[in-house]
Design a protein around this nucleic acid. Structure first.
Lengths: 220, 220
DNA sequence: CGAGCAGTTGAGAGATGTCAAATACAGTGG
DNA sequence: CCACTGTATTTGACATCTCTCAACTGCTCG
């Protein structure tokens, strides 16, 4: 399977063979990380960027009262902290939600890529802008939609994002996260998320078989 | 009063006199905009960036059911859409919440500034990263805090941001927006926001006199 | 003075949270 | 292969937060 990051970029940018080779060379050192581990913690000043190759990770914050708020998903092909250097330290943590394969690319390598490969440079600036747009969408979702639509929206977004890297069929994918993760994402209680999922299942809007999620209507 | 944008940047970057002059020259053409007008609409491909000099504006989206979700405030010194060009079209609208003084800087001017003034270039990439961090903070706020803390958080954030541009005292500022605006920000009903504000007033956490907001504890 | 918008109040409905327990499931060691 | 353990999911009952609707007040501006 091709590198999901390359696959994602190629949907939008015309990569040269040299671009591709440079990216592949930069992502040779894959690390396995079990679920529930932090890749980066709030306050860190990371000296490399992470590229998710397999599995789900997330950006999150822990509140004083102990509850967790997930503010973004990182799925295969997503890169994190490209530009933290400009901001200083991390304002949030990044942790795995499922077992992940992760590539850590040293900062110098990133700088090398942005300097010598103009298309990659553009791509590296583009990605966080997409992240930001997603963040806005989540904010709308959380603020102004009832729980059922909100959860449905998240599930659909994941479908589209996984399709972009070839990890979903036309209407289904593997969702390797728990209902608790989902509830920390939606800002709902896990109990309520459970009931919403049952409701969605009851309406035939989603079909789940273990960790496999199917969204029949999505093809319509 | 100095340009609030310059003031904001100088808190973090060492601007040369040339930097300052370039910014001032770029911001001569001020436009007055009444409250409730769109500066940019969703779907636009703007050919200039806006710089807010006075007043409050916001990024927002309208949902199919007609409700509005405010996903960011733009206060004096804030710049919008620096990098939309990379993303394509706007995924949201920008509108005024109060009467505003706005500077529209043509894209070529921006490119000129980023090319010829390295410090400004860095600053222009820094600003949207701060916006993104704020967005994450809002998401946490909305997802995992009860209504009273949520509203309090918003009010405190505005204090800090206005202080950064010299538009607030140590614990007070003018808040030129309505309770409806606040509720579209917090994802609450206007009625509930009203009650929360009364509650905060009752506890002495905020003191309002017309549009003037004082947060006594903030000095503590 | 009147119109219109912002703010306020009350009552009742509905959505979501909390708590506590029961069930299903997956991985582990015997 | 099976019991065992810990986690994930599900269920029920109840509390509470927040919303909706509708009316009323007060302020600002023409």
């Amino acid at each position: 399977m091709p590198n999901p990051f390359i696959r994602k970029l190629e949907r939008r940018f015309q990569l040269s063979e040299a671009d591709r080779q440079a990216l592949i060379q930069a992502s040779t050192k894959v690390r396995h990380v079990p679920a529930g581990e932090d890749l980066i913690s709030e306050g860190d000043v990371p000296d490399h960027v992470f590229l998710i190759q397999r599995g789900f990770a997330c950006r999150y914050k822990i509140l004083p009262n102990g509850s967790r708020s997930i503010v973004a998903y990182l799925v295969p092909g997503d890169m994190c902290d490209l530009h933290v250097a400009i901001l200083g330290q991390m304002d949030h943590s990044i942790g795995t939600l499922s077992p992940c394969d992760v590539v850590a690319i040293p900062r110098e390598t990133v700088e090398d890529l942005t300097t010598n490969f103009p298309t990659l440079n553009r791509a590296f600036w583009w990605a966080p802008l997409v992240d930001e747009a997603t963040l806005r969408e989540w904010l709308v979702n959380m603020g102004r939609r009832p729980a059922d639509l909100q959860v449905a929206h998240i599930l659909c977004e994941v479908l589209v994002r996984l399709q972009a890297v070839g990890l979903a069929t036309e209407n289904s994918y593997d969702l390797p996260i728990t209902q608790v993760d989902l509830s920390d994402t939606a800002g709902l209680s896990n109990v309520h998320v459970n009931r919403v999922l049952q409701e969605l299942r009851g309406q035939g809007l989603i079909v789940t078989k273990g960790r496999h999620m199917t969204i029949p209507e999505s093809s319509a």
